[in-house]
Amino acid sequence: MSALPDTVEAMRQLLARGGYVADQALATTVHLALRMGRPLFLEGEPGTGKTEIAKVLAAQLPRRLVRLQCYDGLDLSSAAYEWNHARQLMAIRLAEASGETDRAAIERGIYDRRFLQERPLLRALSSEGGPAVLLIDELDRADEPFEAFLLELLADFQITVPELGTIRAEVPPLVIITSNRTREVHDAIRRRCLYHWVDYPDAARERAILALRAPGLPERLSAEVVRFVQRVRGGDYFKLPGVAETIDWAQALAALDARELEPGPVDETLGVLLKYQDDIAKLRGAEAARLIAEAKQAAAA
């Protein structure tokens, strides 16, 4: 495991080596989270690169990545730990077969660490495999009561198992929580974290992202794609395209040997950029042609 970046600029360079172009504010917040040993809470629209930050940090530091994907109905047994009841029952039967009659001793024996099945939260505290980056992804998808399970972990990097005691991390993981803000995450979570809103990149940063993630694109095509997408994001669509869609769309156009935006290829590939038929129908045709003209003009300026 390499040393942590000692300046904000070093953090920006580390992220850039992993293909992530961070602005000054984001690089500062990530740097502070690492230096202060605090969890990082990233909130923003889908497709703005929140999850990618955790992946890049894990790859570049390097640390093992432990990911908890949140969903409706997520509970402690899926997120933190679960007792292996089948193995416990077998241990009870073996103890009884060997003549053990002390019920208290049998009970103490079955609530041992070897019978504990680690889920992502507990796995991130383990020293096995070295320090971790713990990604708690899309926390807003989980039920609100689940957030209470996280408070001890975020405050003290530990989990208390009633039958076993408190399990603490020898080396605290770097915790990154993401939210698409489909609901508000409780203040108790926010207070334990450093916070950053991850917005869509401006045109200059999106061009830099394309240069890193899709090298070899024709310069004119890259400039026009970014200007077109920036204008789409200013429209009234159900699901705005994220950075990943910009990259995919640019690569799709390049695969069709496009050197610049033209109405035909644009209309034919809108399914790469937009993910809902109503949005595609609204943009296709005259509206796309208008945005192409504006994108060409802006890219040439």
Rank of each mutant, 00 (worst) to 15 (best):
S127N: 10
S127W: 06
Q117K: 14
E128K: 09
G130T: 03
P131Q: 00
E128V: 04
L121D: 11
F115L: 02
R119D: 00
Q117G: 08
F115W: 04
R141N: 12
P145T: 14
F146I: 05
S126C: 09
E144M: 13
E147Y: 10
A132H: 12
V133I: 09
G129H: 07
A142I: 10
G130R: 05
E147W: 06
A124T: 13
A132S: 12
R141M: 10
G129D: 01
F115I: 05
L122C: 07
D137L: 12
L122H: 06
E138T: 02
P120G: 11
L122A: 00
E138N: 03
G130L: 02
E147V: 06
P145K: 09
P131T: 04
L135N: 11
E128L: 13
A124F: 12
F115G: 10
S127Y: 08
L116I: 14
D140A: 06
L122M: 13
G130P: 09
R119P: 06
F115P: 08
A142K: 09
L135W: 07
R113T: 15
S126F: 08
R141F: 13
R114H: 14
L116Y: 12
L139R: 14
V133A: 08
D143M: 10
L121K: 10
L135T: 10
R119A: 05
G130K: 01
R114W: 12
D137F: 04
D137T: 05
L121W: 07
R119F: 13
R114P: 05
E147F: 13
R114V: 14
A132K: 14
L122R: 00
L134D: 01
L121M: 11
L125I: 05
F146S: 04
R113N: 12
L135P: 10
E118S: 08
E138K: 07
E118Y: 15
D143S: 15
G129S: 07
P131H: 05
D137Y: 05
P131N: 01
G130S: 10
R123P: 13
E138W: 04
V133E: 00
L134R: 01
R119I: 05
D143C: 04
L121Y: 02
S127Q: 04
L121Q: 06
